[in-house]
Write a protein that binds this DNA or RNA. Structure first.
Length: 271
DNA sequence: AGGCCCTCCTGTAAGC
DNA sequence: TGCTTACAGGAGGGCC
């Protein structure tokens, strides 16, 4: 999926085209996503105006004058702004038609995504209320990772993927940040020192910031809502670079299954 | 509470 | 060429 930078890129793409616009219609072509799309959103959203678009973790929140819509892109979801006269394609499941005849369309081949009703307080939605802090929050304490990893037995890579501890970090950026911080993904989270945890948080912030700047990472088919790929792939140091040379020491990058997902790291630079 | 496993679905690419 | 299998960027829910 789209991880935090890809969701942020998506947000940046849709915000100027949605904000202030009136919703003429909602069309649901396939309601069976991760959870069923509530059919009540048609009535709740039609005729309302989009006031504000924002992101929380990997969720997009569209606030309208009638309540909020929560969108998650799952593993393969993408949003597109196109003319409503363009016919929906095979994996287009949901669309929001505006009175200017532009429309926001959700495409999601694997259907792990979600479109949910957030009402007047989306933050208190079951899926959002227990999320950890935003990694790019300027007020996030430098020792946050140290605090939340104490007594954690599982490996640090899987720990970073837990959105309840820190929000929005997926497998790609977890691997990249661990490389930048010089920490092996298999390390037990609770064994990391305070300086290592600080280094790791800074690395997460650096890699996410750089990826957002590049428009996200296109591994296969990620596109911004206006159709541009993300250019961060060329900046990846370890992810997907099995047997490639470590950019720091030249050693071949190792790939290994950790938990249920692959990790990539340098056996020399990451300890 | 934490950790592990299963699950949802389809496309793609590798392997035989 | 064609079939089978493994894997992919997520993450909630159930269970121990």
């Amino acid at each position: 999926m789209p991880e935090l930078p890809e969701v942020e890129t998506t947000l940046n793409g849709i915000t100027p085209l949605l904000t202030g616009k009136t919703i003429k219609a909602i069309n649901i072509y396939q309601k069976q996503l991760r959870w069923p799309i509530p059919s009540t959103i048609k009535k709740k959203l039609t005729g309302t105006k989009v006031q504000h678009c924002r992101r929380r973790a990997k969720y997009l929140i569209l606030e309208t004058t009638g309540g909020s819509l929560i969108i998650h892109l799952g593993m393969s979801g993408s949003l597109h702004i196109i003319k409503s006269s363009i016919p929906a394609q095979k994996h287009d499941h949901f669309e929001m038609v505006l009175t200017n005849n532009q429309c926001l369309r959700l495409r999601d081949p694997r259907r792990f995504g979600a479109v949910l009703w957030g009402g007047n307080s989306p933050e208190s939605h079951k899926l959002l209320k227990d999320l950890g802090p935003e990694p790019l929050d300027k007020d996030l304490p430098a020792d946050h990772l140290y605090v939340v990893t104490r007594k954690r037995k599982r490996n640090i890579r899987d720990t970073l993927l837990d959105g309840h501890l820190i929000a929005g970090v997926g497998n790609i950026y977890a691997n990249e940040a661990l490389f930048l911080a010089g920490i092996r993904p298999t390390r037990e989270a609770g064994s990391l020192s305070k300086p290592a945890c600080r280094r790791l948080l800074v690395a997460i912030q650096q890699v996410l910031t750089a990826a957002i700047k590049a428009g996200g990472t296109t591994l296969k088919d990620f596109q911004s809502p206006t159709g541009n790929p993300g250019y961060f792939k060329q900046s990846l140091q370890v992810y997907g670079r099995e047997l490639g040379a470590c950019t720091s020491c030249g050693q071949p990058i190792k790939a290994k299954m950790v938990g249920s997902r692959r990790c990539f790291y340098c056996t020399k630079c990451q300890r």
